[in-house]
Design a binder for these strands. Sequence first.
DNA 1: GACAGAATTGTTTGCGCTCACATTACTGCA
DNA 2: TGCAGTAATGTGAGCGCAAACAATTCTGTC
Lengths: 346, 346
Amino acid sequence: MITMSPRRHSQERAPSQIDVARLAGVSAQTVSRVMSGQPQSVRPETARRVLAAVDELGYRVHAAAASLASGRSRILGVIIVSTDRYSSAALGVGIEQAAAANGYTVTTAAVPDHASSEAFLDAFDRLERQGAEGIVLGVPVELDSPAMRTRTERTPSTRSERTSMDPDAPHAVDQRAIARLAVDHLLDLGHTTVWHVAGDTFWLESDQRREAWEEALRERGITPPPVIPGDWTPESGYRAGRTIAEIPSATAVFASSDEMAFGLIRALHEAGRSVPEDVSVVSVDDIALAAYASPALTTVRQPFEAMGRAAALRLIARIEGKDAVGAVPDVHPELVIRASTAPPRA
Amino acid sequence: MITMSPRRHSQERAPSQIDVARLAGVSAQTVSRVMSGQPQSVRPETARRVLAAVDELGYRVHAAAASLASGRSRILGVIIVSTDRYSSAALGVGIEQAAAANGYTVTTAAVPDHASSEAFLDAFDRLERQGAEGIVLGVPVELDSPAMRTRTERTPSTRSERTSMDPDAPHAVDQRAIARLAVDHLLDLGHTTVWHVAGDTFWLESDQRREAWEEALRERGITPPPVIPGDWTPESGYRAGRTIAEIPSATAVFASSDEMAFGLIRALHEAGRSVPEDVSVVSVDDIALAAYASPALTTVRQPFEAMGRAAALRLIARIEGKDAVGAVPDVHPELVIRASTAPPRA
DNA sequence: GACAGAATTGTTTGCGCTCACATTACTGCA
DNA sequence: TGCAGTAATGTGAGCGCAAACAATTCTGTC
């Protein structure tokens, strides 16, 4: 049996810039110039020779060395919550897309849902240590603590949601608009009030939607009914549904996620109340399965991929000090009317 | 207005090992020893002084420099398909978990679904350039091409699925077992045959399940009906459902994903065929919403997180030349019986 | 055909860290 | 008390690359 060193999986040292330079008959610096790709001052003929040598040797730039020498890593960090939730996944896809399109790599640090701020700071530190030039905060976090403050001053970061601090963050969707779209739709249908199944209060979005729901109701002179708590999951939606089923006067519900709407509707059906005949339901997200619920969900779509792309793009622009890195996509929520809403029974 | 350099977001250079060493009154090497954490030969008192200096200065190891000097990056690469599909997300969570637990960082490279092998090789190269010491292949890919071969020889990689080549890969779930679980359940219920809505044939799993489905049928002397194509999405399940609705003799269907089952059931209902009274449906995955379909889905659960953890763990073990990095979790599929299956009508 | 100015290429240096080895400070035991 | 042996720390070098600057080759112009 052949013994081999555990670490070296290649037979010999990987080719370096110098090997390429030697083979192409140029200096290492010229190789560097060719590899960095910019239409720099290298004669086409020279570049061709270098590229040929690169090809022959299978040379690859050593990112760590380049990063050390240049001070730039072109790494984007992403802090995500370790769930398989649709929204996180879609957000990640968008971030990755925008990063790749601009020559950035993304490295992720997952934290548990409801992570302590220590866990969060730790994730941040891990990304900084990796050399991340910017960090997308895909998790709710207190930015005002001294510890966070020093960090965000040091390395630029963007949250993927909009806070009350920067109400106009153009890359995050307006949560209040979401609630308003949902409530107005229900009210316009003729319902006299709208109940609300909130998302996990750990997330900023939850409160923002709840507040906007209350506000929309009050504006029409309606006193908001008590909030029914939830946590995004279908299970919590189911529990909320059992509560609502006991309230005969409830004919319209605004649920803060599609997944909760699935559970909610199931509970309603089990209690003999049909949707939308007895109870109308509007939810949020428009996941792939929303159209295949029974009944198909009327929901406020969030363009998650675009949100991810927008966040990454904004961050890259900030890192590079440019005003724009191509157009930052629009991230407006949109009401998708399907079959889970109807006018109240006469 | 204050102007500031675009790149430097910190006021001055980040503290380095030497700064810490100076403050603690030790050599840089000692700082290195303390930072690398192993219970090396450093007096507790010295370590304490170093740590205090680290804290005061806010020092962080510069991963790129460490990587350059040591030749080890402790980076795990992951190639994922850029969809928000539940399975990819959950797999990613598992990988990230196992990586973090072993001191590895993960960096991702997304490729479009149905990516060309060029796109795939490109993703691989990007990860290698980042210094990934191992790569998890979360995407179906031809491993036998010369280009892939040189790459996988150079840097260890693991696919997240099981191939026919290594039927015993202990970290990937046995797709044939999945199909068998589904088919046997249906047949045992008394159905005379089982129709199959396949997943996207781009994915290895699809074919493996289809083959096992055929085999299970033949073993009981049943000639398999034609395969109905699908691509994992609820839309494709819906199309398949319309096809099946036209076949009065079809009373049992094995759909290769829960999402397709949602579409399938919807189509069946629209055609006036009820589930499970007229048609029984078994699917695969057991996503969070499976229990909230109408009817609740009988499905073969795949432990995605565990699969991800297992893949990462195996890879790390390979990188470090160890036999084990803690226990590699079990990844057996499991039939979850809910409400979408029943005996055929008398 | 000579020269300024630009285009192209080369040389030197050091990024921040860990490795391998050298040195010094300790311990225990005869 | 002294010395071997070990524990704890320090020293020099170099990982692979890009920045800064220097040197060389090209233009085009009169």
